[in-house]
């Protein structure tokens, strides 16, 4: 019984990581109907930005070996600023890799290739400048208490249910992000405009919505979310190198489809479903853990192609 509860807690904690990765991914899909393959790279960049903003030194052997900013910001400021920088990169990507294609009305699949190219550039640029080495955040980024209590016992002494404090924080922050996002989309003018563009760009622009501004804002938001979540995940697992975010790319795809492509709540639900499914794989079969995600994806696609929360089949691609 305690094993089952422990697995549930594990599943929720990794699920929240999948969920926050997928949020920015699904946002761009909902508006443009394209999959942004550079999303993982922006996620990685956010983690690097924050690392340097808090005054971290480059342990890598790239061109900027040993480099360090002359100042160090407090972590809460740095993570938002790091996210904002990632947002700007994302906006830059939109300008360079997506807008020219859209302007020409090109095959949406080409956006997949151009974003793939953009991701390749970012990852290799990071490798060139920073290096392939692992960078880690100091243990005190979440304050003294969290540093003293790196793991929590949610059960009793005889039936321990252990969880890492960092995971609880990520869980909490991702819920906050989700609520803020739902508010933004359902209650603000920009959010309504986003919904309108997602529904039908032509009608939206006839109604006076500036499609370009909405798209720009969507990329900014998606980059911001990617940057912040990249940092959060890195505080838990370290930045394992320039390919850090790409490892989540494939699972991220599974997550957004599980929940329903382009659906914000669906991305979060998909993340938790995947996390739980993986955590509940029996001990003897953990070798097949990665296949479980995709078996689940395949089955869902067969039975309910619109995803768990999707209302209709989107046929943008």
């Amino acid at each position: 019984m305690d094993l089952l509860l422990q697995s549930l807690v594990n599943g929720l904690s990794i699920g929240s990581v999948y969920a926050i990765f997928a949020l920015g991914y699904t946002l761009v899909f909902s508006i443009l109907g394209i999959i942004n393959f550079a999303h993982g790279a922006v996620f990685t960049l956010g983690a690097y930005f924050t690392y340097f903003l808090i005054g971290g030194q480059n342990n890598g052997t790239g061109l900027l070996a040993g480099a360090q900013l002359p100042f160090g910001l407090p972590f809460p400021v740095a993570i938002i600023l790091g996210g904002a920088l990632a947002g700007l990169v994302s906006v830059g990507l939109e300008r360079v890799a997506f807008r020219p294609l859209r302007a020409r009305g090109a095959d949406p699949l080409l956006a997949l290739v151009s974003s793939l190219g953009a991701g390749l550039v970012i990852v290799n640029l990071v490798q060139y400048l920073i290096g392939a080495e692992i960078l880690s955040y100091p243990t005190n980024v979440y304050g003294h208490w969290a540093e003293q209590h790196p793991s929590l016992n949610l059960g009793t002494a005889s039936f321990p249910i252990q969880i890492r404090t960092v995971q609880v924080i990520i869980f909490g922050v991702s819920l906050v992000i989700l609520l803020a996002l739902l508010y933004l989309i359902n209650r603000t003018k920009m959010g309504k405009a986003m919904q309108a563009v997602a529904e039908n760009p032509t009608t939206a622009s006839l109604l006076g919505v500036s499609t370009d501004r909405v798209i720009l804002f969507t990329f900014l938001l998606s980059g911001l979310l990617a940057g912040i979540s990249g940092t959060l995940v890195a505080t838990s697992f370290s930045i394992s190198g320039p390919y850090f975010g790409l490892a989540y790319g494939l699972k991220g795809l599974a997550v957004i489809v599980l929940g329903g492509l382009g659906d914000i709540g669906g991305a979060v639900l998909g993340g938790f479903v995947l996390g739980l499914a993986e955590a509940l794989v029996p001990g003897e079969y953990t070798a097949y853990k990665d296949a479980v995600a995709f078996l689940l994806l395949f089955l869902i696609l067969m039975l309910r192609p619109q995803g768990l929360l999707g209302r209709r089949l989107i046929q943008k691609v």
């Binding site: 080409l110 290739v113 550039v121």
Partner: peptide, 10 residues
């Protein structure tokens, strides 16, 4: 390589 891929797509 990545830049050329991007430019070719565009």
């Amino acid at each position: 390589d990545g830049l050329l891929l991007m430019l070719a797509a565009i």
